Simulated scan of single mutants.
Amino acid sequence: MAIAVSSPPSTLGSAPTKKKVNFANLGVGAAMNMFEVTTLGQPFEVIKTHLAANRQDNMITAFKKIYQRGGISGFYQGLIPWAWIEASTKGAVLIFAASEIEYLALGSGVSPFAAGLVGGMGGGLAQAYTTMGFCTFMKTVEITRHKAVGGAAQKSTFAVANEIFKREGIRGINKGVNAVAVRQCTNWGSRLGLSRLAEETIRKVRGIESSTPLNAYEKIAASAIGGGLSIWNQPIEVIRVEMQSQLKTAGRPEKMTIANCARWIWQTNGLKGFYRGSVPRFGLGMWQTICMVAGGDALKNYVNNRFK
């Protein structure tokens, strides 16, 4: 989800410089997102999703159960093909939407923080409704569905997807997409906005001119701060996971909405249930934002300079 966004104006009142959205930048977004999810991203995602769906488990129990399901590969459940399909598409969508919205916001005279916030929110909504609904649902299905043991035949992930589609249609395979949209909107609004705010704070503390680029360590620090602080919306993520979970529990509503799902979590786990999986999501948020904001900006600049 590398974000090719407009640079904040170098001086107050000056017009922002629009960064051209081209195929090279779209490729950077896909490449950085593939790198992020294939390295630490998917293990964080699996642990986070397990804890959100199995809210009675602690971190140690989650590690044990995930490892028992498939060893090291258990931490990469849902990576192929769903996470790869999602990663190779949603970055490009986020780049286009966030860059255009942030450019317009900066042009209206708002601060880099506000422009980043609005751009991230718009980009998050765009990627949720265009590319993420089905893939996010199927990743959650893979992590939470019952796995065959012993010599029993294991249904392929495509067979499961086909069964859900036949049974529930297009709405079934996009179950929880509204919760995904709320999550992505608040995720990237927070990550991009707070990262830009952290960059501005670093500039003020270190006395760096607005026209001088931050170095790699400063960009990484700003991105880590923005990504880590974005976990404030964990209750939305727990609701999303519960709506898409394949676990069967007595009393669980058959047709989940955001409202009745929230009531179910409250009734079964209380307030703490909404914050299950916060620790791995903190790590995931930091890693994603470092890759997509700091790493994405660096790779984008290299590609644009190399092939301009």
Rank of each mutant, 00 (worst) to 15 (best):
residue 184 Q to P: 03
residue 79 L to H: 03
residue 151 G to H: 07
residue 121 M to Y: 02
residue 180 V to A: 02
residue 97 A to E: 01
residue 158 F to G: 01
residue 131 T to R: 10
residue 173 I to W: 07
residue 129 Y to L: 14
residue 138 M to Q: 12
residue 114 A to H: 02
residue 181 A to F: 12
residue 184 Q to Y: 02
residue 177 V to D: 03
residue 154 Q to P: 03
residue 86 E to Y: 12
residue 141 V to M: 14
residue 128 A to Y: 04
residue 144 T to S: 15
residue 179 A to C: 06
residue 141 V to G: 14
residue 161 A to K: 04
residue 185 C to D: 00
residue 84 W to T: 08
residue 108 S to Q: 09
residue 164 I to P: 00
residue 159 A to I: 00
residue 140 T to Q: 15
residue 101 I to H: 01
residue 139 K to Q: 07
residue 84 W to Y: 11
residue 156 S to N: 07
residue 86 E to R: 15
residue 134 F to A: 15
residue 120 G to I: 06
residue 103 Y to D: 06
residue 108 S to H: 08
residue 185 C to F: 15
residue 155 K to D: 05
residue 109 G to M: 01
residue 88 S to Q: 06
residue 115 A to R: 03
residue 79 L to P: 01
residue 180 V to N: 04
residue 182 V to P: 04
residue 83 A to M: 05
residue 116 G to C: 08
residue 81 P to I: 11
residue 92 A to Q: 06
residue 115 A to T: 01
residue 137 F to M: 09
residue 137 F to W: 13
residue 131 T to P: 01
residue 145 R to M: 09
residue 101 I to M: 05
residue 164 I to V: 06
residue 117 L to Y: 10
residue 157 T to R: 05
residue 168 E to M: 12
residue 155 K to E: 11
residue 146 H to M: 12
residue 158 F to D: 07
residue 131 T to H: 07
residue 178 N to R: 13
residue 83 A to E: 04
residue 179 A to T: 09
residue 120 G to P: 02
residue 177 V to W: 15
residue 167 R to H: 10
residue 86 E to M: 14
residue 184 Q to C: 05
residue 108 S to N: 07
residue 173 I to R: 11
residue 110 V to E: 00
residue 139 K to W: 03
residue 130 T to D: 07
residue 80 I to H: 12
residue 88 S to K: 06
